[in-house]
Amino acid sequence: MRLQRPPPRAPMETIIAMIDVVFFLLVFFMLIGRMDASAPFEVLPPLGLSGSDLPAGGLIIAVAPDGRQALDGVEMDADAIIATLAARAADEPALPVRVNAHHAAPLSLVLPLLSRLEAAGLRDIGLVVTPNPP
């Protein structure tokens, strides 16, 4: 007598290969991306070849060409930014602050901001540039 056995289950290899690929993609995107808070407006930093690698961490002030400013993704005016940072600088003068200004922003928005940050007691201030713009 010949018994009809049920066909064996489909092998699990296909889904395991997919998990491998997804893991690779996940690690790849985690490594090459930065998880900085992005400003509520578009900021394209200026092209500059003489910068050093931007270290992770720190607060980022975004400056739009029309004068809007944001601290770590939250839009606020310059006085509020300075007040917030001055309060934090009192405890932590080495707090890194990066000014990410749009390349077309006038210097009347950026240079006074840098002076005020320095006057607030911050010692680690940097201007964000990009060596290869999109």
Binding site: I32, G33, R34, P45, G48, S50, G51, S52, D53, L54, P55, R98, V99, N100, L114, L117, E118, L122, R123, D124, I125, G126, L127, V128, V129, T130, P131, N132, P133, P134
Partner: peptide
């Protein structure tokens, strides 16, 4: 994914 650099400003 923008390649960002920094120029020290202080």
């Amino acid at each position: 994914y923008l390649d960002l650099d920094m120029i020290p400003a202080a």
